[in-house]
Computed example of a mutant assay.
Amino acid sequence: MRAKPTPLGAQALPAGLVVRSLQDLKLVQKRLAQQRAEAEALAVARREAEVKRQQANRLFELAVGPVTRLHPPNKVLLNNDPPPPIPVQHQLDEQRVLLESISDDFDVSSLLDTDDALSFRRPGISVEVTRKLRRGEWSIQSQLDLHGLRTDEAREALGQYIREAHKLGLRCVRVVHGKGLGSPGKSPVLKGRVQSWLVQKNDVLAFVQARPAEGGAGALVVLLRPSPGGH
């Protein structure tokens, strides 16, 4: 007679397995024993891993020694204003001005071309440059008028003007010194001085007397050296 399916009490059967005989019952017991063994093995592995982790932490503590938490420093962080920048470029400009200071005692007569207008060109500058200046082939980009200034005021104004014009990248400027008609003796006081001052400025490459429509004998057309930042 074939036995009816029998439950195993409190023990759960593997899914889909029905006990129909004693042989089936033994098979179920075997599978349940395997499951219990696997669960115990997994639990043992987890306990061993935890023990190893704790031992590793203990080894680190033994190697480092006692650890004391650092107390926060008794400091107050203030948002102080940064120190003012050092005007290095301004200082360099001032030193350059001192090095290029112009003198009233400089004799320029030997440096001027002995033509009708007494033009000037530095060594290495061709005669064609002054010819082009006379013909107006260089466009005048700026002008300085020294009328009404004393000699010391005119000297300072001219030095500053040439320095700033060169820094701005200007190449051709006009300096009006006047014909001296209002001076005692009707002689041009500033004309010779301006020529002497311009010769002493390293930024000046050449100058010529202006054309009649641009001031004639009362003005000079000046060619400046190209500046590093100019065009």
Score class of each variant (00 low, 15 high):
Val221Trp: 02
Gly215Trp: 03
Ser196Lys: 06
Glu40Tyr: 12
Leu78Ser: 13
Lys167Gln: 07
Gly169Asn: 04
Leu42Ile: 09
Arg211Asn: 03
Phe207Asp: 02
Gly230Pro: 06
Val64Ser: 09
Val222Arg: 02
Gly136Glu: 05
Leu17Ala: 11
Asn79Glu: 14
Gly185Gln: 03
Trp197Pro: 07
Cys172Gly: 05
Gly218Cys: 06
Ile125Cys: 11
Ala15Met: 03
Glu100Met: 11
Val208Pro: 01
Pro212Arg: 08
Lys52Gln: 15
Gln34Ile: 09
Arg46Ala: 14
His147Gly: 07
Leu223Val: 02
Gly65Ser: 09
Val222Asp: 04
Asp104Lys: 10
Glu214Val: 02
Ala10His: 15
His90Gln: 12
Ala213Ile: 09
Lys132Val: 01
Val204Leu: 04
Glu61Gly: 09
Pro212His: 08
Ile102Met: 13
Trp197Phe: 08
Ala10Asn: 15
Leu181Asn: 11
Gly192Leu: 03
Leu32Asp: 04
Pro5Gly: 03
Asp113Gly: 05
Ser187Asn: 10
Glu100Lys: 06
Leu98Val: 10
Val222Ile: 06
Pro84Trp: 08
Ala39Val: 10
Lys179Leu: 08
Ala49Asn: 09
Val175Lys: 02
Val64Arg: 10
Arg135Met: 10
Asp113Pro: 00
Ser139Trp: 00
Glu137Thr: 04
Lys191Met: 06
Ala157Lys: 09
Glu100Cys: 10
Pro66Gln: 13
Leu59Lys: 13
Gln141Val: 07
Glu61His: 10
Leu168Gln: 11
Gly218Asp: 05
Arg163Phe: 07
Leu8Met: 15
Pro212Ser: 07
Leu59Glu: 12
Gly159Val: 04
Gln34Pro: 00
Arg58Lys: 13
Gly229Cys: 05
Gln89His: 13
Asn80Trp: 14
Leu149Arg: 14
Pro188Val: 03
Pro123His: 08
Leu27Val: 08
Gln209Arg: 12
Gln209Cys: 05
His166Glu: 04
Glu128Trp: 00
Lys179Pro: 07
Glu38Ala: 14
Leu8Gly: 00
Glu48Val: 14
Ile86Gln: 04
Pro226Glu: 07
Leu42Gln: 15
Lys132Cys: 06
Leu224Lys: 00
Leu133Pro: 02
Gln160Trp: 06
Lys201Val: 09
Gln95Met: 15
Arg171Lys: 05
Val204Asn: 03
Asn57Ser: 09
Glu38Cys: 09
Asn80His: 12
Ala37Tyr: 13
Leu112Gly: 10
Ala157Thr: 06
Leu205Glu: 13
Arg31Cys: 09
Ala43Gln: 15
Asp24Lys: 00
Gln29Pro: 03
